[in-house]
Design a protein around this nucleic acid. Structure first.
Length: 599
RNA sequence: CGGCUCGUAGCUCAGCUGGUAGAGCACGGGACUCUUAAUCCUGGGGUCCAGGGUUCGAAUCCCUGCGAGCCGGCCA
């Protein structure tokens, strides 16, 4: 069953469904955090389309303590803020944001817009400060014993009898991560700001008594989670697998929700990690791809597609290799094409497509990703014009936009991920790889040089046709011929359209390079020839397709062997065929004539 | 050590409530061609991790083992 339908089938009867997700803005979010965002957005859009009354809310957990210094921040400046609520930590100088939480979360929310994620944003600091959670805090403190019991039973964590599920913002040092409440009298809590409560921050030692309401304190994560469910009326909320382990935060929150708040926890959607290059990306280490990077790289429909066609329970292993990326784009394009053309598709595929393709609703044509990466490496080429040429008609507004986003992706890939071997670069000296060329290939290159030198009109098209012409007369098959060209110029087996490539390189340089290797004529002739038996087979197969004129045969002797060259016409184009044998050329010629039955 | 998830063609994966396996890519062959992941036909390929159990019958359910990934103080 399609995973979205699985979720649908678990949904309880409700007037309104509320999907919730949240993120602690402690650093630049890594790509992995996009998975939950997109899954929830898909659920939201899917339910909405099915006629449900549904909302998608997304919170910034900005009252959480700062428990790490993101790699992008200067350590010496931020060290002092560790332990303070993220909402109370200043933003980097000159960033224009009033605090660190806003600094990080606003960029994340911008990504939402880029990806077409429609969530209503909220900020936890507001809900603490305006008293929205006062009732929850009171409930939680009154039921501290129940919660201690839950921690013990569900995860085996022992809490002392005077432990309370609340954390106060220290009146003296402003930290929230270091305080521990030791008493609750129904109105106020007594707390200690402990020096060694956590490893990542140091408390000031202050002991105080204060009301836990209106922003003076916050509930710890797992408790807060349950409180949010109850007070926001959350009915659907997934979480990454790290939260969903047995005895983990989700289990604790579930128990608190039921036993303390009397609220049935939302439908869960456990989802796997989003890995890049085989490793889990971690923002705390300050390396690995960020959500920002991914959003700047892949067009939204592609990223959405990747996340939605993969079942949430399966991990996504994104590899920034050309092969993987091309495959991903092509998979999406194929589906796109099938749907546009009205070909049969599975219902779930259609759903995935609709949930991915949210910006363009009309049919459009696209160029292949790898073709684009090739073209953008060529100087003086207008990809838009090239696309029109291929499509045979002008681009529509949508096609222009889609192409633009593809070009952006290709550029991003080339700059950030492409290994050297995927970049086309004109080799200033003859590449090492040229040693692998056969004598026939080298002979072809030399012949090509002669023809090109004599060319009056030296341009893309004439060069391209000359290449084919020389290939037919060498003879050498087209693929091998092109490989030879790419090898001597780029050190690779493939490259951009050869005519275009050569047209943009200095002619003298081209000629010199083509002639740089010399070939052994004896070997060339032998390797490029068929023996009589092979010729006869060829003839049997092709006699209906080719035309031969009696004056098109040429015989000569060389290196103690006879050779016969035959020019034939196939599809209006002349080709050369070389035949050899131990006989002298005149005898060979007779035999050839017998086979083709002319005199 | 405990828990969770997973282990299906070379690769990435589909296979809902059990009836002896599919797709895409890759590979082989053919057609076609002014090459551009070309395209179009076509073919080969799997002891469904291993062993046991339930069943007339299991990739599909149960148990065990092996292997992989993740979680397992606090924080989130």
């Amino acid at each position: 069953m399609f995973w979205l339908d699985e979720i649908l089938s678990k949904l309880p009867e409700k007037e309104q469904h509320i999907i919730n997700d949240a993120k602690s803005p402690s650093g630049p979010p890594h790509v992995g955090s996009l998975r939950g965002v997109l899954i929830h957005d898909a659920v939201y859009k899917y339910l909405k389309e099915k006629g449900y009354n549904v909302r998608y809310i997304f919170g910034s957990d900005d009252y959480d303590p700062m428990d790490e210094i993101a790699g992008t921040l200067p350590r010496e400046i931020y060290e002092q803020y560790l332990g303070k609520p993220l909402a109370h930590v200043p933003a980097p100088e000159g960033s224009g944001f009033e605090d660190l939480a806003m600094y990080f979360i606003s960029d994340f929310f911008k990504i939402f817009d880029q990806l077409g994620v429609e969530a209503e944003k909220y900020y936890m600091r507001d809900y603490y400060k305006n008293g929205f959670f006062n009732e929850a805090i009171e409930t939680v403190l009154d039921n501290a014993d129940v919660i201690r019991e839950i921690y013990l039973k569900v995860s085996g964590a022992k809490r002392p009898d005077n432990w309370y599920p609340i954390q106060v913002v220290c009146e003296k040092c402003g930290k929230i991560g270091t305080t521990e409440v030791i008493d609750w009298d129904g109105k106020e809590v007594t707390y200690v700001c402990k020096e060694d409560k956590v490893t990542w921050a140091k408390g000031c030692g202050h002991v105080g008594k204060i009301s836990p309401f209106n922003g003076n304190a916050k509930m710890p994560y797992k408790v807060e989670w349950a409180a949010k469910w109850k007070y926001f009326g959350v009915t659907i909320e997934g979480a990454g697998k790290d939260h969903n382990t047995k005895g983990g935060s989700r289990d604790i929150a579930n128990a608190i929700s039921r036993q303390v708040f009397g609220y049935e926890p939302p439908v869960n959607i456990p989802y796997e990690f989003f890995l890049v290059g085989g490793a889990k990306m971690s923002s705390s280490k300050g390396r690995g791809a960020t959500a920002r990077a991914m959003a700047d790289f892949l067009p939204p429909e592609i990223l959405r597609y990747l996340m939605l066609y993969t079942h949430p329970k399966r991990k996504v292993n994104f590899e920034p290799s050309e092969k993987y990326i091309t495959k991903l784009f092509n998979a999406f394009d194929k589906l796109h094409e099938r749907i546009i053309n009205g070909e049969p598709v599975e219902d779930w595929e259609r759903s995935v497509y609709k949930l991915s393709q949210i910006f363009y609703h009309e049919p459009y044509r696209v160029l292949d990703f790898s073709l684009i990466t090739t073209m953008i490496q060529l100087p003086y080429i207008d990809i838009y014009k090239e696309a029109e040429k291929r499509f045979g008609s002008p681009l529509t507004e949508t096609e222009r936009k889609v192409l633009e986003s593809r070009i952006k992706a290709a550029r991003y890939w080339l700059e950030n991920f492409a290994p050297e071997e995927d970049k086309y670069q004109l080799q200033q000296t003859l590449p090492e790889k040229a040693r692998e060329l056969t004598q026939v290939q080298i002979a072809f290159l030399n012949k090509l040089a002669d023809k090109l030198e004599a060319l009056d009109d030296y341009n893309e098209d004439t060069i391209q046709s000359t290449i084919f012409e020389v290939a037919r007369f060498t003879p050498i098959d087209g693929k091998t011929a092109f490989q030879a060209i790419y090898t001597v110029f780029l050190g690779k087996n493939n490259g951009p359209k050869a005519g275009r490539l050569l047209a943009y390189i200095d002619k003298d340089f081209v000629l010199k390079r083509l002639r740089e290797l010399s070939f052994d004529e004896k070997e060339f002739l032998e390797q490029s020839s068929l023996d009589l038996e092979q010729f006869e087979q060829w003839w049997q197969k092709n006699k209906d397709k080719v035309q031969i004129q009696s004056d098109s045969l040429k015989a000569y002797d060389k290196f103690d062997k006879g050779f016969v060259e035959l020019i034939y016409i196939k599809k209006d184009k002349p080709h050369l065929l070389r035949i050899t044998g131990s006989d002298n050329s005149q005898e060979l010629l007779q035999k050839v004539k017998q086979i083709i039955n002319i005199d």
